[in-house]
Structures are given as C-alpha cells and as structure tokens.
Write a protein that binds this DNA or RNA. Sequence first.
DNA 1: ATGGGCACCTGGCTGC
DNA 2: TGCAGCCAGGTGCCCA
Length: 271
Amino acid sequence: MPELPEVETTRRGIDPYVVGRRIEALVVREPRLRWPVPEELPGRVAGQRVLRTARRAKYLLLELERGTLLLHLGMSGSLRMLPAGVPPRRHDHLELQLDSGASLHFNDPRRFGSLHYTEADPAVHPLLARLAPEPFDPGFTGEYLWRITRRRRVPVKSLLMNSRLVVGVGNIYASEALYRAGIRPTRTAGRLTRPELERLAHAVRAVLTGAVRAGGTTLRDYVGADGRPGAFRRKLFVYERAGEPCRHCGVRIRRIAQGRRSSYFCPNCQR
DNA sequence: ATGGGCACCTGGCTGC
DNA sequence: TGCAGCCAGGTGCCCA
C-alpha cells in the first residue's frame, strides 16, 4: 500500500498515542515478515519509553531510550491504535502494548512489511544507509535530478521508483507526478531536459504534499491509525483511471505495463 | 555501475 | 460453484 504519504499519515496518527509512553510488551504473533522478527527483539524493547516518532523514506521510526524500531509497511501493511484487550484480527502480526493501556496493532496480509531494532544510529542501518535524500529536503531540486539522470537509460518512471535516487515515491505517485510534470512514464531519464526535471522535482513534492494533506490514498486496504481511509483517491488524475477521460483535456487515460507494474498517463497532456 | 527480472505473500476479482 | 489466472500502495538480491 503505502508510499510516503500513507506512512507519514500513519506516523502522525500514532504519534500522540505513543510518544512518552512506555512499552510494556511487544507481542509477535507471526514473525515471518519480509525478514523474520528476531526472537530477542521483544525483550530488548520492553520497558523502554518512546521518545519520538520519525519517518525516513517509507520507513516509520520509533525512537526509544536505547535504540530505534524501524517498521516498514510493505504493500499491504497498516497500523491501528486500539484500546487494551481488543482481540487481534486476521493478519495482526505484531502488537505493541503501551503503559497507557492502548495497543499499536500491525496488520499485514501479504507480510511484505518488516520490523527491525537497532541501538546504533539508524541512519547507518543497512536498510537506510543508501537511501536518496527526502523529497522535501532542500537538496531535492531539478538540479539534483539533472545530476542523477545523466547517462541513465531507464524509463523515468523506473527512476522515480528507485530508492537510491528518489525516495518515498511508489507506483501511484510516480504516475501522478509524471502527469503533473507533463512527462510520459516511458521517457528515457537521461534524455529529459532541465526544464522538464525542474517541473518533475516540483511535481513530486506537490503530489506528495497534497496526498499527505488528504491523509493518503486508499485503493484497497490502507487505513490510517484511526482506521479511516485516505481521501486522496478522489484527487488522482491518472492512477487506476484507464479509459476514463483526462480531467484536463478529456482524452482517455492509458494504462501500460512497465516491468511488472502498471503505469497510467494521458497521451495528450504528457509528452 | 546499470538495468532487468525474480522472489517473497495473501486475497480479491474475472472469466470460463 | 470451482478454479485458474491475473492483479495489487515494495524492494532487496542475483545475474548479465
């Protein structure tokens, strides 16, 4: 499910309920996630207070007194804050029980999500160390995109989804950002002009900002920590709109396959 | 170094 | 109703 806006919405949703609380227990009902949850992990985090929440790319970070929990929601993961004693539902793999009595439930049908714990600087964790700058960093500019795209032969859509180059953008927002920038997803990254890359940098930020403001996009199973779906779906211009008229020009939106994923674009507005 | 394809999973929908 | 096939918000890893 979750791209940057959904992870950020989740972070904001849980923040007031977890910061300052002590972890009484971490219940691991299903350790077989993308990477197995280590057996000793619950014992290492129990008793620690949550100091703050953070996000890096699509990773949600819970900073504890002695270390940091790194949670990834994968394709189908979501977090819910629930009162104590609410029985786990199907695919509720993890439950973080807090001293407030509330519990944070991690649900993930496909089990592509993951949980790690480190007592080192999380920035040097292998999963985070090689990530590109955040799209909201001052360094994420057309100039930056220009620099990383020279002599890249991949389609620009693939480039947007490569987390070593651009972070936080997944299949929905890649199509949406390219639409806003007026660039076809199939264009070779290294052939894009400076003005196009300026537009693209701006479009990436604008799409992500708008989606965060709307609480993310719910297509199927995504819900925020309060259980409510995101409202950005109504503001999608191309994603999952194949055959429907472009909101600007009325031409039918097209769907194509790139790699194993679907891309959507307006053949008139995007060149 | 770069790019492409695969793997990891479950579940919902479509069409025969 | 059953079942095969396809598709789905991600991404690390292996190979050419």
